[in-house]
Amino acid sequence: MTFSFEQPPAELTWYHLGPLLDAEAGRLKYNPEQYTVHGVSNNAVACCWAGLLVDGDGGLVLTELGRGMLADWKASPAGQRWLAEQAALEEETSAPPAPSAPTLQPVPERADQLDLFGAAS
């Protein structure tokens, strides 16, 4: 996928960010079972067409344009907010679970309470 059919976007939106962030992290690999037509999501293909991604070794990688636009977005207030929110979510999900309330243990029964109804008959 080395063609550029569209003009690059004026700004990055949610539509572009997933594939670009995945490509930056090296996670944008072809998966023909999940994406039977192109091996990647439609959003990733649109990023290729816009000149933000190109074929790499087993997946898509950022172009210089894609890398530059992603860096600008990360430095923007909106990007900083989003990245902070994602970091907080990751921290929340990776934190060890809070200690649970102690479980109540049954009180050992006394021998005279074991046969409540047998003693009355």
Rank of each mutant, 00 (worst) to 15 (best):
M1W: 09
T2Y: 05
F3D: 14
S4W: 01
F5S: 09
F5N: 09
E6A: 06
E6M: 07
P8R: 02
P8H: 01
P8Q: 03
P9F: 02
A10H: 13
A10Q: 14
L12G: 00
T13H: 03
W14M: 09
W14A: 08
Y15V: 03
H16N: 05
L17I: 02
G18S: 09
G18P: 04
P19C: 01
P19W: 00
L20C: 01
L20I: 03
L21S: 03
A23Q: 02
E24C: 10
G26M: 07
L28T: 03
K29D: 08
K29P: 01
Y30V: 09
N31H: 11
P32I: 05
E33Q: 09
Q34I: 11
Q34S: 12
Q34P: 03
Q34R: 15
Y35Q: 07
Y35H: 15
T36S: 11
T36E: 15
H38K: 04
H38Y: 09
H38C: 02
G39T: 04
G39F: 04
S41Y: 02
N42V: 09
N42P: 04
N43Q: 14
V45F: 01
V45D: 01
C48W: 00
C48G: 00
C48T: 12
W49E: 14
W49T: 09
A50W: 03
A50R: 13
A50E: 12
G51V: 05
L52V: 08
L52F: 04
L53S: 04
V54W: 01
G58L: 04
G58R: 11
L60F: 04
V61K: 09
T63Y: 01
T63E: 02
E64M: 11
E64G: 12
L65W: 03
G66D: 10
M69L: 14
M69Q: 13
A71C: 08
W73R: 01
W73T: 00
K74C: 03
A75Y: 06
S76M: 02
P77C: 05
P77Y: 04
G79E: 00
G79V: 00
Q80T: 10
W82L: 06
W82M: 00
W82P: 02
L83M: 14
A84V: 05
A84W: 05
A84M: 08
E85L: 08
Q86L: 13
Q86R: 15
A87F: 01
A87N: 12
L89K: 13
L89P: 03
E90A: 12
E90S: 07
E92K: 13
E92G: 12
T93L: 14
T93S: 14
T93Y: 09
S94C: 11
A95E: 11
A95K: 10
P96M: 08
P97Q: 12
P97I: 11
A98M: 07
A98K: 04
A98R: 07
S100R: 10
A101F: 08
T103Q: 06
L104N: 06
L104V: 12
Q105F: 06
E109S: 07
R110Q: 14
R110T: 15
A111R: 03
A111L: 14
D112E: 13
L114Y: 11
L114V: 15
L114C: 14
L114E: 15
D115V: 11
D115T: 14
L116M: 13
L116G: 07
A120R: 15
S121L: 10
